[in-house]
Amino acid sequence: MKQLPESKGSYGRFWRMLMGAMPARILMSALDLGVFDLLDDFRSPAEVAQRLDTHPANTRLFLDSLVTADLLEKRHGLYRNLPDTTHFLKRGTPLYLGDLLRFSWGLCVDPLKDLPKLLREGPAPGPGIEDENLWAEASRSNAAWAFGEMGRMMAGIVSELDGFPGFARMLDLGGGHGIFTLYFVQAHPSMTGVVFDRPAITRATREFIEEYGMAERVGIAQGDYLTDDLGSGYDLIWASSTLNFARQELDSLLTKIYAALKPDGYFAAFQDGLTHEHTKPDVALGFLPGALQSGADFGFDQGEIAQAMLKAGFRSVRSHSLDTPMGTMDLDIARK
C-alpha cells in the first residue's frame, strides 16, 4: 500500500492570494456601475436592478457578494452601504476615492495581464510612468490620497518642526494637486506656499486652490524641477512621492533644494523606503508594472534618500516609517 502524503503546512495562504483578486474585481465593477451611489438607504435588489438597468437575479447575487466583501449590509433581503462605503465610495462625497482607485488599478493592476509577454520580450514601448499627460489626467483623482487622514497626519508632523511658527514660505516640489500644501498652510497663521509642477499638471492644482479659498496664500510655479530654477528663501520644501522621477539625478536635485532653503530650513521627502533587499513592504508591488514596462527601477531603498541628503550638505536627518492607507512609507526630514 502506497503511503498517503502528509502536509507540513497549509496551502491556505496561496488560496487566499488567489481569491484576493475577487473582492478587487467586485469593488471596481460596483464603482463603474454606481452601485454605492444608490444605497444610502436600504433598497431591494429589484429596485437596484431597475435603477442600474441590470439583470434582476444576477444583481441580487452581485449585491450578496458586496455584502460578503464587507462593502454593504443586508437586512431582511434589503441592501445598504456600510458607513465607510458611503464615506469613501459614494460619488460626490468630499473624500470620494473612486477615481483614485480606478487610476491605481489602471496603473498598477491592469498592466499585469501582459505579465508573461513582458517577461519574455522585455520592456514595452509607449507612454510610461514619466508621461506628463498621464499625471495631468491623474492629478485630480490622486488628490484623494492626500485629503483627510493623510493631509492631517502630515500637517501634524510638519507643525511640530522646530521653528514652524516662524515659517514664512514653503515649496511643494512636484506637488501635483497641491493638497498637502493646503493642509500645511491652513495649519499656520500666515505661511504662504508655492506648488511647483509641470504646466499640464497644475490645472487641477489651481482648481483646488480656488475651491478651498486659498488663492491669497498658495500660488503655482510651472516648470520641470530637474532643469528649472526652484526659487529661494523657503523655510520648508516638501516632496511627496515624486523623487522617483529624479532617482538618477537625485544628488544634483538635492543640491538645488539645499540652495533654495533658508539657513535652518527643512526638506521633507515622503517616499517609499524598500527593505529586505528591495522586496518589502507590500508597496513595492506597485512599482512592478512601471518597472517592467519602462525597464527602469523607480523604488528607493530605505535610507537611500537620507544618505543623499547628508551627502548634499544637510546637517541632520530624521527618518520615520509611517503606516498609511496605502502601506508603509518613509518620511525623511533634513535640516540645513
Rank of each mutant, 00 (worst) to 15 (best):
I129F: 14
I129Q: 13
E130S: 04
E132I: 15
E132L: 10
E132N: 08
E132R: 11
N133L: 12
N133P: 00
L134W: 02
W135R: 06
A136R: 00
A136F: 00
E137Y: 14
E137K: 15
A138R: 02
S139V: 01
R140E: 15
R140W: 07
S141Q: 09
N142T: 13
A143H: 09
A144N: 06
F147N: 06
G148Q: 11
E149N: 07
E149R: 13
E149K: 13
M150G: 02
R152K: 12
R152D: 08
R152T: 12
M153W: 12
M153N: 14
A155Q: 11
A155E: 09
G156E: 11
G156R: 07
I157E: 09
I157F: 10
V158K: 03
S159E: 08
L161A: 11
G163W: 08
G163V: 09
G163S: 11
P165C: 09
P165E: 10
P165K: 07
G166V: 00
G166Q: 10
G166H: 05
F167I: 10
A168Q: 15
A168F: 04
R169T: 04
R169A: 11
M170W: 03
M170P: 06
L171M: 07
L173I: 06
L173E: 06
G174P: 08
G175L: 07
G176N: 03
G176I: 02
H177I: 00
H177G: 14
G178F: 02
G178N: 04
I179S: 03
L182P: 01
L182N: 05
L182A: 12
Y183V: 02
Y183G: 02
F184T: 05
Q186C: 08
Q186K: 15
Q186T: 15
A187D: 04
A187L: 05
A187G: 06
H188Y: 04
H188P: 05
T192H: 12
G193K: 03
G193S: 04
G193V: 05
V194E: 07
